[in-house]
């Protein structure tokens, strides 16, 4: 595909490559660090990790989810939700919830990676459930197919998350968040576990391979430069109409006023 990919080689993109490179180094450093940490953890006693997780859980989660994660009136049971669900909810900052009146929103995570892993290990120890994944395990860049991913996205995701993954409204003030800027592993875990209002897309409904394709398409949409000018939020004709009235007609009326005033 010449149109999209060739621009990267151009001289104008130099500063970007530099920036992207720096970003990449930064991310891989963080990832490497996390990997080495988990390696350390693996060697340590698994039971310690679970115990640690249980302790964090008792402090931060049990007030809503119950002391043994059995759930209570306001919060669901976590038995059997698996490490994937914990990783998604905690690492994206959705849990613990800041405000019970709204749906859980993405925000700065409260727990660090180690604590998240401990929590996940604890919840996973209660009953088997989907395991958490890492970005490296996914290898979506190699195994995904963008075009197929786009079709799957439009069939399974666009109705809530909008055609370009910008998010959309649900009933009674709930909303489907944007999927732009979300870690691939969190997208994967969300499809697997169905957080909050989102339904579950099991591996038979969307095969792991198909999930990777969806991630690849989302990442493509996220990085696609503006092909036709300012994107206007990628939310369809509403912002276009607004711009036509304000900037378009506004400019023209401005010119018309100038045109019909007498020169001095």
């Amino acid at each position: 595909m010449r149109f999209i990919s060739r621009y990267r080689r151009h001289r104008f993109a130099g500063p970007f490559l530099l920036l992207a490179g720096l970003l990449f180094v930064g991310i891989s450093y963080t990832v490497a660090q996390a990997a080495s940490e988990s390696a350390v953890l693996n060697t340590s006693d698994k039971a310690t990790l679970i115990a640690e997780g249980k302790e964090i859980f008792a402090r931060g989660c049990s007030s809503c989810h119950g002391l043994n994660a059995e759930g209570a009136g306001i919060a669901p049971s976590l038995i059997g939700v698996g490490a994937a669900s914990v990783d998604f909810q905690v690492a994206t900052g959705r849990m613990p919830m800041a405000d019970m009146s709204h749906q859980a929103m993405r925000k700065e995570p409260v727990y660090n990676e180690e604590e998240t892993a401990a929590l996940a290990a604890y919840v996973a120890s209660l009953a088997p459930g989907p395991a958490a994944v890492t970005n490296e395990e996914l290898a979506w860049e190699r195994s995904g197919d963008t075009a197929e991913g786009g079709e799957l996205f439009r069939n399974n995701c666009a109705m809530c998350h909008n055609f370009a993954g910008q998010g959309g409204a649900l009933t009674q003030g709930k909303y489907a968040p944007t999927v732009m800027g979300v870690e691939p592993k969190h997208i994967y875990e969300a499809m697997l576990t169905g957080p909050q209002a989102m339904p579950v897309f099991s591996d038979s409904v969307l095969t792991p391979q198909e999930k990777l394709s969806i991630i690849k398409w989302i990442k493509h949409a996220e990085n696609e430069p503006a092909l036709g000018g300012a994107a206007l939020g990628r939310v369809g004709p509403v912002t276009e109409g607004l711009l036509a009235w304000t900037l378009g007609l506004g400019l023209l009326i401005g010119v018309a006023v100038w045109l019909t005033t007498k020169a001095r």
Partner: peptide, 20 residues
């Protein structure tokens, strides 16, 4: 200007230079 050239503009982000 080749169609594969992209430039960065403030507010608009990375934009296709040919079209712009």
């Amino acid at each position: 200007i080749d169609e594969s050239i992209f430039i960065f503009l403030p507010i608009m982000g990375t934009t296709n230079a040919h079209q712009l």
